[in-house]
Computed example of a mutant assay.
Amino acid sequence: MLFDKSVEAFDTYLKANRGLSENTRKAYRGDVEECLLALERLRCRDLNEVTIEDLRMWMAESSKNHAKSSMARKTVAVRGFFAWTHEHGVTTTDPACALMTPKIPDTLPDVLSESQAEQLMERVDEDGETSQPKERTMKQQAIELRDAAMLELLYATGMRVAELVGLDVPDVVFSNRTVKVTGKGNKQRVMPFGAPAQKAIRRWLDDGRPLLVGEQSAAALFLGRQGKRIDQRMVRRVVHECARDAGVPDISPHALRHSAATHMLDGGADLREVQELLGHSSLKTTQRYTHVSIEQLKARYGQAFPRA
Rank of each mutant, 00 (worst) to 15 (best):
L39H: 01
G89K: 04
T93E: 13
V173N: 14
V7Y: 00
L2P: 05
G194A: 03
L154G: 00
V90D: 01
H88E: 13
G214M: 09
K26F: 03
R41Y: 07
T178V: 15
K228F: 08
V238G: 00
E273A: 14
N48F: 07
D54S: 04
Q132C: 08
A195D: 14
S115F: 09
K103N: 13
M1H: 13
Y289L: 07
E49W: 09
A304N: 14
A200I: 03
G19R: 06
V169H: 05
P253Q: 06
R237N: 13
T101S: 14
V90P: 00
E40H: 09
G279M: 01
L151P: 03
S217M: 07
E129K: 14
H291T: 09
M191Q: 11
L37H: 11
K298S: 12
L145E: 00
R300N: 11
V90W: 03
Q140H: 11
G214R: 14
E40W: 09
T178C: 13
R41M: 04
L297F: 15
D270K: 08
T285E: 02
E276Q: 13
E40C: 08
R160D: 10
E122P: 03
H254Q: 10
Q232R: 15
P210S: 05
R233D: 07
C44P: 04
R233I: 12
Q141A: 13
I143N: 00
Q141W: 10
I230S: 00
D207G: 06
V181C: 12
Q116R: 04
V76R: 03
R300K: 12
K180F: 08
V274G: 01
A269D: 00
K184M: 07
V190D: 10
R45L: 12
K187M: 08
R237V: 08
M264R: 05
L20V: 08
E129G: 07
F193H: 02
L14S: 00
D250E: 15
G247W: 06
V32L: 08
Y28S: 02
M57C: 06
D125L: 12
Q296N: 13
L205F: 01
D106L: 10
S252Q: 05
G185E: 07
V190A: 11
V274Y: 01
G194Y: 06
M57K: 12
G279D: 00
D11S: 14
K228H: 14
D11V: 15
T286P: 01
S175V: 10
R257A: 12
N17I: 05
T93R: 14
E61N: 00
Q275S: 05
A299R: 12
T182V: 14
L99N: 04
A255N: 11
L47S: 01
D270Q: 11
C35S: 13
D11W: 04
G166V: 04
G19C: 05
S70Y: 02
V235S: 01
Q303K: 14
A98P: 06
R257M: 12
S69N: 12
R203G: 06
G183K: 07
A83M: 10
H258N: 04
L223R: 07
